[in-house]
Nucleic acid binder design. Sequence first.
DNA 1: AGTCATGTTGACGA
DNA 2: CTCGTCAACATGAC
Length: 243
Amino acid sequence: MPEGPSIVLAKEATSQFIGKKVLSTGGNSKIDKERVLNKKVTDIRSWGKHLLICFSGFTLRIHFMLFGTYLVNMRKENEARLSLEFVNGELNLYACSIKILEGSVDQYYDWSGDVMNDAWDRKKALAKLRGMPETMVCDALLDQDIFAGVGNIIKNEVLYKLYIHPESLVGRIPPAKLRKLVDEARDYSFDFLRWKRNFELKKYWLAHTRKDCLRCELPLTKKYLGKTRRRSFFCNNCQVLYI
DNA sequence: AGTCATGTTGACGA
DNA sequence: CTCGTCAACATGAC
């Protein structure tokens, strides 16, 4: 569920509720549900891994974390975190973190930092990377202040595709390579979106959860790396360690 | 059946 | 104050 492209799909799946009024609410969320009652959804947007259900004057920020899911016009057995009923259907959100953002949503987000957004700015991302030369690239890719929307799968795939060892230091990666990294983080995210839309994402994984390198056929290494201690799959033979 | 994971926050101590 | 570590949350896949 959680990486940026999946949130774009969630945005698409829920767009039918834009302009519709909330007729009733339910669920075990601790937010003030009265707040949205009889209010009209003005927009549904996304930023990185956040799904944003906008109302006049405030926004519901949905973060699905690791296990969160949503259903449109369907329900699960267990109680939803938040249910919103509209005249044309219902939206059920499960196991997610929900927060109300007061005021204009624009004041909370820099849209140019979201790899899926039209406003994505590669130059800003590059500038941020240049300001953290000692950071491991596996951590930098997961930094939502630089690559909002990039998650662990995208991280592993991008590094594998570009032959970059995950423990490489950002400041040691040649400039041309670093530019490619920034662009691939976005490009791969759109590949991810297309594949996920067709329910064939896993088919295209080159490194993530795989046993052997498709290039040299040696076994891939699986290790928990960086400050983030996230699972990394990489080829010790093909991926260059810039250090 | 037990383990693990596409994620993040907050508490706590050094 | 900042850093590292750990627990917490919660569910489906294998």
